[in-house]
């Protein structure tokens, strides 16, 4: 049941994603990792290489769709079309960023 729901959600993710406009952040990047301080919540977050790539994409692209982020990340690494697994991983990262207050989403 859970897998079936996941599949439905994957194919209908039509949210627009963006860096949370209300956040006020400082970032320190070291190689492929980073730490981000959000003064609104006084929280510090560790961004893994994948999370940093997604966060950078959001900052670069402005409000955008999951598909567009995937395209952007695909361009960067010159990979083939993203798989369902990659889409799911991206959505998980976006959800995590949103939970941390670093990203926000809204419906199309």
């Amino acid at each position: 049941m859970a897998a079936f729901d996941d599949a439905l959600r994957l194919s209908t993710d039509e949210r627009i994603w963006a860096v949370d406009r209300a956040s006020n952040t400082l970032i320190r990047v070291w190689g492929h990792e980073a730490v981000v301080y959000d003064s609104r919540s006084s929280s510090t977050h560790l961004l893994s290489p994948a999370a940093l790539a997604v966060y950078d994409a959001l900052r670069e692209l402005g409000p955008t769709s999951l598909t567009r982020i995937l395209d952007h990340l695909g361009d960067e690494v010159e990979s083939n079309a993203p798989s369902a697994e990659e889409e799911r991983a991206l959505r998980d990262i976006l959800d995590s960023l949103q939970q941390c207050g670093l990203a926000e989403s809204r419906g199309l």
Binding site: L26, R28, W30, G31, E33, A34, V35, Y37, S39, S42, T44, L46, L47
Partner: peptide, 25 residues
């Protein structure tokens, strides 16, 4: 890594939150 080290320092800090952005820097 620097990022991992920083998070561990925060875990062991007494007053990191008091310092806000200055503490982060």
């Amino acid at each position: 890594s620097n990022a991992q080290s920083m998070m561990r320092l925060i875990d062991n800090a007494f007053n990191y939150n008091v310092h806000g952005a200055v503490g982060f820097q």
